[in-house]
């Protein structure tokens, strides 16, 4: 046991060259990922890019066809009790037994988690305004999502895994979910992994971001670093071009005649230097949101 805790202090999740296909369909291809302890890890990607498949591997719901998955230094498939006991999980489907009452599902779920904090669970229940006597099938979609969130949080998990937590929910419930993420990492050493296609949520909360496309990780770094390494310049050239000249690190260029907009990756000063050598004037420089970066990276590949 002490061995595994030592291992896990470095990173909570360690994935190495993980590949998975369902029949002929390739869902993940050679994914390697290391998620450090503490902070928020945002997993972004389009629909069907492989986000959920990756998360299911972390939860031990898929075995690794090739490659390896370690959570807290253990194989989640071989050690479900040890691993899952330290994870709070909310699935995209939010499929909880809907014949139970709110208090029943709290009591039932509590049994599985020795670390369950009854007082905290009760606090959350009151904060979310959940009637303990209601059956889950009679709750609104938002309230049901709050129940799922409560169940994922009440044992103060070391790792909180949220798969598309806010899809299909109103802004009030989304706020609750985001606030829960903030509260979770405000405690030292706790980690949150969440996938989303609402990129402004990721931009607000994530320390690190992995962008997954077509089963492959196409970008993985600290959010700050990612934001600093993508730039968009509008250059004005002295003579018109049919096809604008390439600058080092160009991912995409658009425009016509004298004015061309470049979407580049790299060091800002170097890019400016490169533009000068082409005798172009920088007419405009815009900062990029994660959304812009995502769209450009995905449409290019």
């Amino acid at each position: 046991m002490s061995d595994s805790t030592n291992l896990s202090s470095a990173s909570v999740v360690e994935i190495q060259r993980l590949s998975r296909s369902f029949g002929a369909k390739r869902a993940l291809h050679e994914v390697s990922l290391s998620i450090p302890r503490g902070g928020v890890f945002g997993l972004i990607g389009g629909n069907g890019a492989g986000k959920t498949t990756l998360i299911k591997h972390i939860m031990g719901m898929h075995y690794a066809q090739s490659g390896s998955v370690r959570v807290f230094g253990m194989d989640p498939v071989a050690h479900p009790v040890e691993v899952l006991g330290r994870i709070g999980y909310m699935s995209e489907e939010r499929d909880i037994p809907n014949w139970m009452r709110v208090t029943e599902i709290m009591n039932y779920t509590q049994t599985f988690y020795p670390a369950w904090d009854t007082k905290y669970a009760e606090e959350l229940r009151e904060m979310f305004d959940l009637d303990p006597k209601q059956r889950i099938r009679n709750l609104s979609r938002g309230q049901a999502a709050r129940v799922c969130l409560l169940l994922a949080l009440a044992h103060r998990p070391e790792l909180l895994v949220l798969d598309e937590p806010s899809s299909g929910l109103d802004p009030v419930v989304r706020r609750d979910i985001l606030a829960a993420i903030v509260r979770t990492i405000a405690d030292e050493g706790r980690t949150v992994i969440f996938s989303s296609h609402l990129l402004d949520e990721v931009e607000r909360l994530a320390d690190r971001v992995a962008m997954i496309h077509d089963g492959q990780i196409i970008l993985h770094d600290r959010l700050d670093t990612i934001k600093e390494s993508f730039h968009r310049f509008t250059l004005r050239f002295e003579q018109p071009f049919n096809e604008a000249p390439l600058i080092l690190g160009t991912i995409e260029r658009k425009g016509a005649g004298h004015e061309w907009t470049y979407f580049c990756r790299g060091d800002r000063d170097q890019l400016i230097q490169a533009a000068r050598t082409l005798q172009a004037e920088i007419v405009q420089e815009t900062l990029l949101s994660l959304d812009d970066i995502f769209v450009c990276n995905v449409t290019r590949s």
């Binding site: 939860m59 719901m61 479900p80 009790v81 040890e82 691993v83 899952l84 006991g85 994870i87 999980y89 699935s91 489907e93 499929d95 909880i96 037994p97 809907n98 014949w99 779920t109 599985f112 988690y113 099938r137």
Partner: peptide, 24 residues
């Protein structure tokens, strides 16, 4: 099926059940 006028059925709760720390 879940989205169109139907809540998930009583028994289809695989994700929740399998995320509980209990061994097979």
């Amino acid at each position: 099926q879940d989205q169109v006028a139907m809540k998930p059925s009583e028994y289809r709760i695989g994700h929740y059940l399998h995320s509980l720390p209990i061994s097979p």
